Simulated scan of single mutants.
Amino acid sequence: MTTRRHFLAGLAAATLSPVRSWASVGAPDFLAAALFPDGSYRLAGLDAHGAILFSLPLPARGHAAAAHPFKAQAVAFARRPGTFAIVIDCASGAELAQLEAPAGRHFYGHGAFSTEGERFYATENDYEAGEGVISVWDGTSFERLGEFSSGGVGPHDMRLMPDGKTLVVANGGIETHPDTGRSKLNLPTMQPNLTYVDLSGTLLEQLELPFALHKDSIRHLAVRGDGLVGFAMQWQGSQTEYPPLLGLHRWGEQPRLLSAPEADQNTLQGYAGSIAFSADGNTIAITCPRGNALHRFNANSRAFIDAFALEDVCGLGAGRDGLVFTTGTGTFGALTGADPAISARSDCQWDNHLIPIRSLA
């Protein structure tokens, strides 16, 4: 763990040096966590074709990361129920700070910077109270400034909306406690929701699924430039049921739930891993690692487009001409047409998420 003396010295040095932008590390297009053959967990920066530009060590298994909007900095999160998040200078590989969840809390693996990077927000579990929390951190010193309610239980993913003033939070509805590992403690009564809050924590709108779908845990999010929110779900009910795993929502409207044809939907084992809109926003897709599948839908008509068989596919993001994906077998591929094209095979196991870097200043 970084000592206060080393952290302050590093911070002072950083203020005397030019700001190192994402261009200074080869302008990576994506960040992804991975397990490497030597047993190390690392955060990697990838170019548009999946080549590894850099990889930086993590103290344990990572989940997702958040990229600073213009500095070459990333916050890499532990997998739930981890309590660390590492702030990394991706130009030098130095650890700038380590965020520690307070006593009685753990991170859920996701966070988001404000538009100018002056604040950082993270999803947390107040596991003694059984409530979700959004913590607020200074985006430069990474001092914890405060917190507010997530509006539900089990907040997992969270995104900044295009207005720069609103956070959308995926409250998965599942209560957990570190004393019981990753066990799910409230499945009979769980109630996931999609919550919109302003940056001060004021609840603006909240969406709950119909009771028949109260075991469809809302887990991951994608946001289109016009504010359309896509949400991916993980079914906690009977494996003889095959509910929708993808939804679309626009603020002030009713949600739209999307499913593939029965023969395709029934192979997914009730689990969507990641979600993303294509670069042009016309396509939305989910990955299903348990079912070794990737499904694409038309984001405007909501019609199912196609399904692809891809072993252990999970990471998903917008590529320059469509969608890109990673797998637990080390592959990186693109979907720009009718068939997936593998462009890189790395000697690692890519973890759940592929995080796009929006700005390459």
Rank of each mutant, 00 (worst) to 15 (best):
M1D: 13
M1G: 14
T3P: 03
R5T: 14
F7Y: 10
L8D: 14
A9Q: 05
A9M: 09
A14L: 07
T15L: 14
L16G: 05
A23C: 09
S24E: 12
V25Q: 10
D29R: 02
A33W: 03
A34K: 01
L35F: 13
G39E: 13
G39H: 04
R42A: 08
R42Q: 14
H49M: 08
A51I: 05
L53A: 10
L56Y: 04
P57H: 02
L58Y: 09
P59M: 04
G62W: 02
H63L: 07
Q73A: 12
A74S: 11
G82N: 03
A94C: 06
L96K: 02
Q98L: 03
G104T: 11
G111V: 08
Y121W: 06
E124M: 01
A129F: 07
G130M: 02
G130H: 13
E131V: 09
I134L: 00
V136C: 12
G139K: 00
G139R: 02
T140C: 13
S141E: 12
E147W: 05
D157V: 14
L160Y: 08
D163M: 11
T166Y: 06
N171F: 10
G172Q: 03
T176A: 08
S183Y: 11
S183A: 15
K184L: 01
P192M: 04
N193R: 04
Y196V: 05
L199R: 00
L199H: 03
L199K: 00
L199M: 10
P210Q: 04
D216C: 13
I218P: 00
H220Y: 10
D226K: 04
A232W: 09
M233S: 11
Q234L: 06
Q239P: 14
P243G: 12
P243S: 06
A260V: 08
P261V: 09
G281K: 01
T283M: 05
A285C: 10
I286F: 03
P289R: 00
G291N: 03
A299G: 08
N300R: 15
D306Y: 01
A307G: 05
F308S: 10
E311Q: 14
D312Q: 10
V313R: 02
C314P: 10
G315V: 07
G315H: 06
L316R: 02
G319L: 07
G322H: 05
L323E: 15
V324L: 02
T331D: 03
T331S: 04
F332I: 01
G333S: 03
A334N: 05
L335Q: 14
T336A: 05
A344W: 04
W350C: 02
I355H: 03
I355F: 14
R358Q: 15
S359H: 14
S359W: 13
